[in-house]
């Protein structure tokens, strides 16, 4: 007995080392058993608190990814809306998609020129074509004017040539929306019949006349309106729903019935 104690004292370093290693190995093998879930709950509260405090900070770095996934989900959900289906009769829904939604990421964007463009990371290979609509999570953003294999270029609403057919949401009166250059936050509503009263905050939505956007997508809200009864048509300042300065993720809208609608219009014109 005495000699054993002596041995331990003499080789205490090695003995303690082996002891600690055995403890570790027991822990490792225990962690493979189901007892683990019982014994480590208290510890997990502690570490969990540390991690949740930490993730409160780091979550912001993942917001971009979260946004993208939400956008995809939105696109998926929007394609299931009633408006996305061709309804020919109240009692009958033609089960075919009317609009397809392609989520895309903004590669580059400008807001400080008279003619601004948005480059997106989706192109021909993803089914993007000219004259498709581009919307952000908040509202209309632009129209595709050029497509390459992997990228597409959209004419922003912030373009001196951009002209969009809109509708005042309350009373369905048709108006036109343009951008008279300058401030990226504000556009102009034209062709407002003078009998119409607009107040600040009234919503302007897409009319659905253009074959590009489905109807009812927000373009912006009225910012300032001065009614001049002497004119047949008035103008108003409008705040764009889309924040072009922070635009990161958009959805490209593909109107699947566009060709059919266009050919019909062509027949009519001939």
């Amino acid at each position: 007995m005495h000699s054993l104690l002596n041995f331990i004292r003499k080789h205490w370093f090695v003995v303690l080392f082996l002891l600690l290693e055995v403890v570790s190995m027991v822990m490792i093998s225990n962690s493979y058993s189901y007892h683990r879930s019982l014994s480590f709950n208290t510890v997990n509260d502690l570490t969990g608190n540390v991690f949740s405090a930490y993730s409160n900070v780091t979550e912001y770095f993942a917001l971009k990814k979260a946004n993208e996934s939400l956008l995809e989900e939105n696109a998926r959900l929007m394609s299931r809306l009633k408006e996305s289906f061709l309804t020919t009769d109240t009692g009958f829904t033609y089960k075919d998609t009317l609009y397809r939604y392609i989520p895309a990421h903004v590669v580059s964007i400008s807001i400080n020129h008279p003619a601004n463009f948005i480059m997106l990371n989706k192109g021909l290979l993803h089914g993007v074509k000219k004259e498709m609509g581009v919307i952000s999570g908040n509202g209309v953003a632009g129209i595709i004017i050029g497509v390459s294999n992997h990228y597409s270029l959209a004419m922003s609403l912030l373009h001196h040539n951009s002209k969009l057919s809109g509708r005042i949401k309350n009373n369905n009166i048709l108006v036109n929306v343009i951008w008279d250059t300058g401030d990226y936050r504000f556009g102009k509503i034209q062709d407002i019949p003078s009998h119409v009263q607009l107040v600040k905050g009234d919503t302007i939505v897409t009319s659905g006349n253009s074959l590009i956007f489905p109807e009812g997508i927000v373009i912006g809200t009225v910012e300032k309106y001065e009614n001049n009864p002497n004119l047949a048509f008035n103008e108003a300042t409008m705040r764009f729903a889309t924040n072009f300065k922070n635009l990161q993720n958009v959805i490209i809208i593909d109107n699947l019935m566009k060709e059919e609608q266009q050919s019909l219009l062509k027949q009519e014109n001939e």
């Binding site: 080392f17 962690s31 683990r36 510890v43 570490t47």
Partner: peptide, 15 residues
């Protein structure tokens, strides 16, 4: 504790 790998780092660090 933080990795949820009970014992692995302990064994290696002790070595």
């Amino acid at each position: 504790f933080f990795q949820n790998t009970m014992g692995m780092q302990a064994a290696a660090s002790t070595l």
